[in-house]
Simulated assay, not measured.
Amino acid sequence: MKKLFIFCLIGTSIALISWGFKGHRAVAAIAQKHLTSNSAYVVSAYLKGESMADVSTWADENRNNTTAPWHFLNLPLGLTHEQFVKSVSESDNNVYSAILKTEANLKDKSLSGDQKNEALKYLIHLVGDAHQPMHVSRKEDKGGNTIQIRFDNKGTNLHSLWDSKLIDHEGLSETDIVRTYDAATAAQIKQWQSDSPMEWIWESYQISSELYAQVKSGQDIDEAYYQKSMPVIRKRINQAGIRLAGELNKLFNSVPVPTVISTAAATTTATLSVKLEDVKNAVGKTVSTQGKVYSSKDISSMVLVNLGAAYPNQLLTVALKGKAKDLGNQLDNKTITVEGEVIDYKGKPEIIVTDPAKIKF
């Protein structure tokens, strides 16, 4: 049976890159803020100490003829939801199937740390791709790449407009983008994380269908179009980050932290000694730091110990797990030295300790 959809490789003359540099880093940074503590530690281990934002564009930078189709999905316009689901379910070698493949690889206990590293870098990127509307669009115009338009007095195309041009026009720094876009309510987070990857790309398909109807080749994109489009872009990037965190929490929240040599550890055997107030700048590094314990809380699975100030103003949280959990009732109001890898947990630095020898007081 002839399929309704056709997949194509994008030639070297037309680059299909979702969200651009800022957008992909924003998706990854938002996701990082919504990881559970254990998931953040597993992610850091598999990424060998690199941050999610730093690897978020790796898949674009390392694409080849095999992986190029993983970044998009081509379908004709006008499909019902039922037709869409049927077509996508029958398809392969596209952003939807690639997401399922990378998630399966991350669950596969037989794969090496390097294979998990690559799968995770792909997943971080591809969830962003799935939420860029022009990555679920038509073959005949190469996802909007051949629809030439003008914006900010410069020539561009519909795909590039949604990749980066509208975001660049907004003028926000990467930090401000994350702070501004990450505005989901608890109810939205719950709903978004319950949606399947099929629904993510269905949403993109619906949006791209509207975009095709709104823009014609040769059109001059005005400020009104920008103002109308930015809420959609903000929501899609926020959804991508929230959903990426949801997928990673499902994959990693209950698994043991793997033993993977980090890039930093491979180049030096020395532990970095840092001041407590500077720990926030050492995410992904193994450090030794000292501070006073101001508060602690036993949450059954671990004891959370707050240094530098009481929660929620702590400079560092030390999560005591395993054998180290027994130290929890001995540390209140004491000055301790802790050694371990720093992770980012919801915008705060954290060190997970399972070996009691890593705590001195």
Rank of each mutant, 00 (worst) to 15 (best):
I261N: 10
T337M: 04
D141S: 09
L77S: 13
V318S: 08
T57F: 09
K154D: 08
R234V: 06
D220K: 09
D108G: 08
F5T: 11
A28R: 02
E341A: 13
Y345K: 15
V136F: 03
E90H: 01
S89F: 02
A186L: 13
E277A: 15
S89L: 00
D168W: 11
D182F: 03
K121P: 04
I167K: 07
D195Y: 04
I352C: 11
I6Y: 13
A26L: 04
I343K: 10
F21W: 09
P258E: 06
D92Y: 03
I189Q: 12
T102A: 06
K360S: 15
S112V: 07
N238P: 11
T335G: 05
S39Q: 05
F252T: 07
D195K: 00
K216G: 02
S13Q: 14
A224M: 13
A68C: 04
K228P: 03
Y122I: 04
I207N: 05
I14F: 11
I343F: 07
N329I: 08
V260M: 06
V136R: 04
A29L: 10
R243T: 09
K101L: 14
W192T: 01
L331C: 12
T263S: 14
P133F: 08
A319C: 14
I207P: 01
R179V: 06
A29W: 00
I167T: 07
S13G: 14
Q330F: 12
I189K: 10
V293R: 15
D220G: 03
E199A: 08
K165V: 02
V303P: 01
G322K: 10
S37F: 06
D278L: 08
L211T: 00
V303Y: 03
K86G: 03
S217N: 14
I261Y: 07
T317Y: 03
N65P: 00
S18N: 03
S18E: 14
D355C: 13
D344L: 12
V303K: 05
E174P: 02
V279D: 04
M52W: 01
N94D: 07
L126C: 06
K165G: 02
D92W: 03
V353T: 11
S51G: 12
T335E: 06
Q219G: 02
G241Q: 12
V257R: 06
A213Q: 15
E174I: 05
A53M: 10
L244G: 07
I189S: 08
I261C: 10
K275D: 15
D332M: 08
E170A: 13
N313M: 07
N249G: 14
L106H: 01
Q32H: 09
E199I: 04
L327Q: 13
S273W: 08
T146W: 08
G11F: 01
K107E: 02
A15H: 15
A98P: 00
S300G: 06
D129G: 00
V305K: 07
A266N: 15
Y345M: 12
G144F: 06
D54V: 07
T146N: 10
V293C: 10
G218D: 11
K358I: 02
S217V: 12
K3Y: 05
I299P: 09
A26P: 05
S91N: 05
A240N: 09
S296I: 10
V27N: 08
E199G: 06
V42Y: 00
A319G: 14
P76S: 02
